[in-house]
Design a protein around this nucleic acid. Structure first.
Lengths: 248, 248
DNA sequence: CGTGAGTTTGAACCGGATCAATTAAGGTGG
DNA sequence: CCACCTTAATTGATCCGGTTCAAACTCACG
C-alpha cells in the first residue's frame, strides 16, 4: 500500500518552503514535479559525495545532517536540517554532491528534480525568487557558522547553537524553550569544532547557572536572554521585551 | 571623460563568470543590464550590512574581501574575491546585505541589478543555470572554509590557504607558483581563525622547510605537493603527475 | 537483566593566543 | 633625495582554553 502524497498546498510548512507565495495553477505545477520517496530510517543516506546531482530535497519530518569528509576520513558537519529546510544545494555547482546527507532519526523528505525545477522557475517569477532566497539563506547559515568557528569560544558557540535550534523549532510551531535535540553531543561537537567533552561541560556549566535544564537530549531553556548575552558579549543593543518574538 | 565599458564578450574572464555559455543576442541582453561604476580605491566599501540589496557585483580587476561583524564589533572575513568572482549573494535572502564588501587594492567591478538579472534568467536557460552554479560555488567555498576552521590545525589551514590562492590565480591566467598576496597577514589570520603571529610563524616554518619562499607579500611556492601533503595528511590518493594541472 | 552506545566528570597536557619587543617597509613632507 | 613616521611583519616568552586520556555512570534496548 502506497502512502498518499502530501500536497504542498496542504503542508504546514509551505510558507517556509519552496511553494511560499504560490497558489492555484502555479502551486499545482510545483506539486506535479515533487516526489515523496518512502521514509528513511535513522542513519540512512540520501546521497554521498560524488553522487550525480539530480534532486534537491526538503525535509518533511525528522532531521538530516550534511557533512563533508576530508581525504583523511575526518568529517565536518555543515548543517542540521529540520522540516521545511532545503538539502542538496552542494550539488548544484559541479553536478555532483560534495557532502553526505544522512538522517538522524526516522525522516521523510520531498524530492525535487532540479532540472524540472529550473524550468518551472523560468515560468513562475515568485517561485524563482523564493528558490533564490532559500539558496541565499543557506549562505547566511554557513556564514553564521563561520563566525562561530572563527571568532567564538566554546561557551559562545554552544550558547549560539542552543539559541539557533530553539529559534528554528519555534518557527516550526514547537516550543522554543523546551525540546528534544535530535543529535548526539558528538554531532554537536563536530559541528561546532569542539570536543564532545567540551560540549558536555558547557551544558553542565549552563545548567549550574540555571540558564538551562539538560537531561540527555531533553532541553529546557529557562533564560534565553542570558544565552543571548553570552553570544553577544558587550552588545549595547537594547533587549527587546516582546514576550514571544524574543526567541529568534 | 567616461571610461569605455568593457563588454562581456570582450572580457578575458567571461568563462569564469556569469556570461559563460552565452553568445550573440543573449550575450547582448546580459551586457545591457551590466553597469560598470568607476574604480574604487583601497579600503572603499561596496556595501555595508543593512544596505538594501539591489545588485550583485563581479570583480573585474583588483580584490575584495567580505566580512560579517558581530554585535560586539569583531569581524570575520568570509571570503577574498578575485577577478571573475561574484560578490553580494549575502543580500539575496533577506533583501539586505549582511556583510561588508571592502576593496583591498584599487578595484573595478561590474554591477548587476538582481531583479533584472532574474528576469533575463527566466528567458535564457543557459544563463539561469550558470548563475545557479555560481551561487552553488559560493556554498562550496564556504564549506571548504568550514572544514578548515572546524577540523584543521594552524599548519593545515595556512597550507590550504596558499594552495587555494595559487589555484585561483592559475585559473585566471597567472602563475600558481609565484604571486603577490593582496591581503595582510592580519586579514589571513582573521579569515583562518588564527592570530597574526601564528600565520607569520607558519610562513616562516614553510620557508625553513624550503616549501615556499616568502618576502612580505611576494610568495613563491617551490613544492606545492608538500603543501598538499600537509592539508591531506594520510590520504592515500595517488599524487597525479600532470605537469600543469597539479596546482588546483 | 545485561550490554553497549552515549554522556558526564576529572586530571594532565599542548597548540595556539597573548604579550612584548624588534625589524622592515612604504608614505609623507621638508 | 632623505629623515621621519606609521603600519605591517617577525620572533621570542609566557599563559590558558580546550583537547586528550581515563574512568565512571546512565539509559535505551535486545
Amino acid at each position: 500500500m502506497e502512502s498518499v502524497k502530501v500536497l504542498c498546498g496542504d503542508c504546514r510548512l509551505r510558507n517556509l518552503c519552496v511553494p511560499h507565495g504560490l497558489a492555484g495553477k502555479e502551486l499545482k505545477q510545483l506539486e506535479e514535479i515533487v516526489k515523496q520517496p518512502r521514509p528513511l530510517q535513522r542513519g540512512q543516506r540520501l546521497y554521498l559525495p560524488g553522487d550525480k546531482f539530480h534532486h534537491l530535497f526538503i525535509v518533511r519530518s525528522g532531521t538530516l545532517k550534511t557533512y563533508t569528509t576530508t581525504s583523511s576520513g575526518e568529517q565536518q558537519i555543515i548543517g542540521f536540517h529540520l522540516p521545511g529546510e532545503l538539502v542538496g544545494l552542494d550539488g548544484v555547482s559541479d553536478g555532483s554532491y560534495t557532502c553526505t546527507a544522512e538522517t538522524m532519526e526516522m525522516t521523510s523528505v520531498c524530492e525535487l528534480p532540479f532540472a524540472k525545477l529550473e524550468t518551472v522557475m523560468g515560468q513562475i517569477k515568485v517561485l524563482q525568487h523564493q528558490v533564490h532566497k532559500l539558496m541565499g539563506k543557506e549562505l547566511l547559515t554557513d556564514q553564521q557558522l563561520l563566525l562561530q568557528l572563527g571568532k567564538m569560544n566554546a561557551e559562545q558557540r554552544v550558547a549560539a547553537f542552543l539559541l539557533n535550534i530553539a529559534c528554528r523549532f519555534h518557527q516550526r510551531g514547537f516550543s522554543a524553550s523546551e525540546f528534544h535535540l535530535p543529535m548526539t553531543r558528538s554531532d554537536i561537537g563536530n559541528y561546532l569544532g569542539l570536543a564532545v567533552e567540551t560540549v558536555s561541560r558547557q551544558f553542565s556549566h549552563f545548567q549550574e547557572l540555571d540558564i538551562v535544564k539538560v537531561s540527555r537530549k531533553h532541553i529546557i531553556i529557562n533564560k534565553p536572554e542570558f544565552l543571548r548575552t553570552i553570544t553577544n558579549p558587550d552588545s549595547n543593543v537594547k533587549y527587546h521585551q516582546d514576550k514571544e518574538a524574543t526567541h529568534c
